[in-house]
Structures are given as structure tokens and as C-alpha cells.
Simulated assay, not measured.
Amino acid sequence: MSAKAQHPKSIDDAAHDNIAVPAHVAGSGRLDRLVETARSYAEKSASENTLRAYARDWAHFSRWCRLKGTEPLPPSPEMIGLYLADLAAPSDGSPALTVSTIDRRLSGLSWNYAQRGMTLDRRNRHVAAVLAGIKREHARPPVQKAAILPQDIIAMVATLPYDLRGLRDRAILLLGYAGGLRRSEIVSLDVGKDDTPDSKGWIDLFEDGALLMLNAKTGWREVEIGRGSSDRTCPVHALEQWLHFARIEFGPIFVRTTRDGKRALPARLNDRHIARLVKKTVLDAGLRPDLPEAERLALFSGHSLRAGLASSAEVDERHVQKHLGHASAEMTRRYQRRRDRFRINLTRAAGL
């Protein structure tokens, strides 16, 4: 097997190779600088989490190919169809993947091939027919994370201490809940516009609340977060307390702290901290005591904050849709765990 097959190019290497001056165009210093600029933009075409997932997808498929005595390049619909089948019904006794994970793996392979200037035809019968059969045989209704309701978030923040780390985590939970924010949106916020290169937004504080400018999955959007009914549960007050005592005036808003929780460090928090924080405070607050601890941990995640706002805000659905940055009302309804069912009765409307 060739060295190229054994060590397929990384995503970054493939993206770099595919962005260059055309062979028939004479190179120049100015064009070379434009190539580097274009490559820099290409590297920002997807979020870091997405790129990490795609890299894992490619590494897994490449290893699978080597074990089967074949190569991942160029794309072979026949082999990819067999790969999908092995994911759904593993021949080595390992656990089968869910349909959504298999679909995501296929998207990851398509993206990786595109970065290498190749096309994976997902409509090819060797791919499409196998995937359709897997969905028909194994598809299940989506498992949704539980929504954190108002009484839940109040109980969760009550478990946090009032040292610097507690102030930070209280601001994270309340701001994430009131803003209906994704984990990545929370940790990517800066104090001001253009404070750091990796920022995805900033916050302006006003007397009546906070205005967030977010560069999210669907593009730029504004999120208004009004002040709460008391300082104990107000997300804006919690944010102001954290910024004041952590002495943060520039750069990332949510940063790491020292082990003793008494001093803020410059490094931006990783979004995995949000998931760990939610799970820890859910356990500490004693939510869902009817379930074993493992099930409680699996039931809640960082996304539970976003679902909680959508489920609890008693306002017109259009306002919730705008607040969450959803392109359609149908997507917003997927987040509403307590949405009134059968409010519109078409059976009776049809005369039955």
C-alpha cells in the first residue's frame, strides 16, 4: 500500500492544496498573498467543533479502509455503501451506531472529499439505497434532551458558591438560559467588538438589559436579554458581577480561573465546560430524583438551557423563533417541550 494511502492528508493540508493559482495563470507576489488570504478564509468555513467531528470521521473511515485492504481515495460508492452497512451492523461485535450518527459520518466523508477536490455522489445507488434501508430498518424518533424549566435553573444556580468561579458559572447558566444560547455562543463572547480573532460576538450593557451580537450558525443576529425580576435570578446582574470582580474589561468574557477559584486567567473557556456545568448543577440541585444518576446525566446537556427558554417563555412563538435564530417556526417547535398540544382540533373543525 502506498504511503499516500497509509497517511491521507489532513483537512487543513487538503484545503491548502485545493486553493491555489490556476496552472495557466502566471504567479506573482500579489496573487500568492491572495492565495494565503483565501486559504485563511477556507479554514473558517466551518466551526471548530464541526471540523473536529469531520476529522474524526475521516480518520475512522481511513482506518476502516486499511483494515479492509483498500484505500480511502478516490471515493468508491461501493466501499462507502459497505462502510455504512458495517456501521449499522458491525461485523466485529462493536456497538451499532445510531442512524443520525451514520448520516453525520456520511456528511463528514462528503465534506472531506470536497476538500480534496473530489465528489462523493450520495445519490449513487450503492450509497443511497444502503442508507435508505438503514433508516427504514433502524430509524427511531429523535431523543431530545430535557428542557431546564424556570424552577430548575433557579435551583441550579442556588447550588453555586459566591467565589469568583461561582460568579462566573452563575452568569453562564443565567445568560445561556435567558439568551437561549448554544454552548459555543456562550464561550465565544468578548467584552467588545473585535477584541480577539476567535471571537464570535460581543455584549453591550444598558440600563434595561444586555444586547448580544452573535455570529452564529445562521449568521449574525441580535439577542436582547432584559433584566430579571430580582438580582438573585437576573442574568444581566450576574454578568455584571462576574465582569466586575474578575476585572475583565477586554477580550473573552468567560475565562478560566485558578484552582482555588479566586483569580481569573486569560484563557477562554472551552464549550465543554458548559455541558459539565449543567450536569453538575443538575445533580447538585436534585433534579429528577426519580431517575438513577446515569440517566439524569444523560437526560440533561448544554442544549437543555436553549430548550428551557423555548419551552418556558409565554410569548408569541415568533419572538422565540427570532430570539433563538431559527429559520423556521417548525425548528422552534422542536425545542418546545411543553408546547400546547391539540390546541387546534382539526377533527372537530372538519365536522367530526
Score class of each variant (00 low, 15 high):
Ala5Ile: 10
Ser10Cys: 01
Val21Trp: 09
Ala23Pro: 09
His24Val: 13
Ala26Arg: 15
Arg30Ile: 11
Arg33Gln: 14
Arg39Lys: 15
Tyr41Asn: 15
Tyr41Arg: 15
Ala42Pro: 09
Glu48Trp: 04
Leu51Ala: 10
Ala53Pro: 09
Tyr54Ile: 10
Arg56Asn: 14
Trp58Cys: 06
Ala59Met: 07
Ala59Ile: 11
Phe61Leu: 03
Ser62Ala: 13
Cys65Asp: 05
Arg66Val: 04
Leu73Pro: 02
Ser76Phe: 00
Gly81Arg: 03
Tyr83Lys: 04
Tyr83Ser: 03
Tyr83Cys: 04
Ala89Pro: 04
Ser91Lys: 14
Asp92Met: 09
Ser94Thr: 13
Pro95Asn: 01
Leu97Pro: 02
Thr98Ser: 08
Val99Phe: 00
Ser100Met: 00
Ile102Ala: 01
Asp103Arg: 14
Arg105Val: 04
Gly108Asp: 00
Leu120Ser: 04
Leu120Asp: 04
Asp121Val: 04
Arg123Val: 01
Arg125Gln: 11
Ala129Thr: 00
Val130Phe: 01
Leu131Asn: 08
Lys135Phe: 08
Glu137Lys: 15
Arg140Gly: 05
Pro142Val: 08
Gln144Tyr: 09
Lys145Phe: 11
Ala147Ile: 04
Ile148Asp: 02
Ile148His: 06
Pro150Lys: 07
Pro150Glu: 03
Asp152Thr: 06
Ala158Lys: 15
Arg165Glu: 10
Leu173Gln: 02
Leu175Phe: 00
Gly179Asn: 10
Gly179Asp: 05
Leu181Asn: 06
Val187Trp: 04
Val187Gly: 05
Leu189Pro: 08
Gly192Met: 07
Gly192Trp: 07
Asp194Thr: 09
Thr196Ser: 14
Pro197Ile: 14
Asp198Trp: 11
Asp198Leu: 14
Ser199Asp: 15
Ile203Leu: 13
Ile203His: 07
Glu207Arg: 15
Asp208Pro: 05
Asp208Leu: 12
Met213His: 13
Thr218Gln: 10
Thr218Phe: 06
Arg221Thr: 05
Val223His: 06
Ile225Trp: 01
Arg232Leu: 05
Pro235Met: 07
Ala238Pro: 07
Ala238Glu: 03
Leu243Ser: 11
Phe245Glu: 10
Phe245Gly: 00
Arg247Met: 02
Val255Trp: 01
Arg256Ala: 13
Lys262Met: 01
Arg263His: 10
Leu265Trp: 01
Arg268Asp: 13
Leu269Trp: 10
Asn270Asp: 14
Asp271Tyr: 11
Arg272Met: 09
Arg272Pro: 00
His273Ala: 13
Arg276Asn: 11
Lys280His: 06
Val282His: 07
Ala285Gln: 07
Gly286Arg: 15
Leu291Ser: 11
Glu293Tyr: 03
Arg296His: 07
Leu297Pro: 04
Leu299Arg: 15
His303Gly: 11
Gly308Cys: 09
Leu309Ser: 02
Ala310Gly: 10
Ser311Tyr: 03
Val315Lys: 06
Asp316Cys: 03
Glu317Trp: 04
Lys322His: 02
Leu324Pro: 04
Gly325Ser: 03
Thr332His: 03
Arg334Thr: 06
Tyr335Ile: 05
Tyr335Pro: 08
Gln336Asn: 14
Arg337His: 12
Arg343Tyr: 00
Thr347His: 06
Thr347Tyr: 00
Arg348Gly: 14
Ala350Asn: 12
